[in-house]
């Protein structure tokens, strides 16, 4: 495997790990600068097919991570392909869909504009900064996953705990 497209599984494993991490340790993550971000799943999930004969499964509205369909997907070894996430850093809150296969952020909704900001120039600067910041946050959490995932011992330790969680979901 040498091209990036064939590594889509890594982003999907990241999203699945995120679900595991949120349910077993909570959704707070430490990032650079001594800051902490909170991440939760919102109202959209897409599960990847577990094999060639299966199809993707899309769950919308409500709290899809708690549905029987989502749990059945985990129990059948499916990875999470896409999910709508809510991320909070202090007063700032973003919503977006993370496509694990490509690690792109879609349908991003930025935090509300700071009412104290003046004209369009200041607001534009803040919005651009918030687009950059959400990408940095996702990358830092992805890096935390990769530090676990890219260890030869991953399959005997972290993955086994996750497999037990998936099987007992």
């Amino acid at each position: 495997m040498s091209d990036g497209a064939s590594f889509g599984f890594l982003g999907e494993e990241f999203l699945t790990w995120l679900w595991f991490r949120l349910e077993t340790e909570g959704g707070d993550f430490d990032i650079d600068g001594g800051r902490s971000v909170g991440i939760s799943f919102d109202d959209y999930l897409r599960l990847a097919p577990a094999g060639e004969q299966e199809t993707t499964q899309t769950l919308r509205a409500g709290t899809p991570t708690r549905t029987a369909e989502a749990r059945a997907g985990l129990q059948n070894g499916r990875r999470l392909q896409e999910a709508k996430l809510v991320t909070a850093l202090g007063e700032l809150q973003w919503q977006f869909v993370l496509d694990g296969t490509t690690m792109t952020l879609r349908s991003i909704k930025l935090p509300d504009d700071d009412p104290e900001l003046g004209g369009p120039e200041e607001k534009s600067r803040e919005r651009a900064a918030n687009f950059v910041l959400i990408h940095e946050i996702v990358e830092q959490v992805y890096a935390q996953f990769l530090r676990l995932r890219l260890q030869p011992s991953y399959l005997q330790q972290e993955a086994e705990a996750q497999a037990n969680w998936m099987a007992s979901s």
Binding site: M1, G4, A5, F7, G8, F9, L10, G11, E13, F14, A50, Q75, N76, G77, R78, R79, G100, T101, T102, M103, E139, Y142, A143, L146, R147, R149, L150, Q151, P152, L155, A159, A163, M166, A167
Partner: peptide, 29 residues
């Protein structure tokens, strides 16, 4: 993409070397 991003995140040399070997986890049913 997930791989190129991994290469730009300041991971250690060992982790990056392991990128070439990493295979999908075959989660049990």
């Amino acid at each position: 993409d997930p791989r190129s991003l991994a290469e730009h995140l300041g991971l250690g040399r060992e982790a990056l070397a392991y990128l070439d070997e990493v295979a999908p986890v075959n989660w049990p049913s």
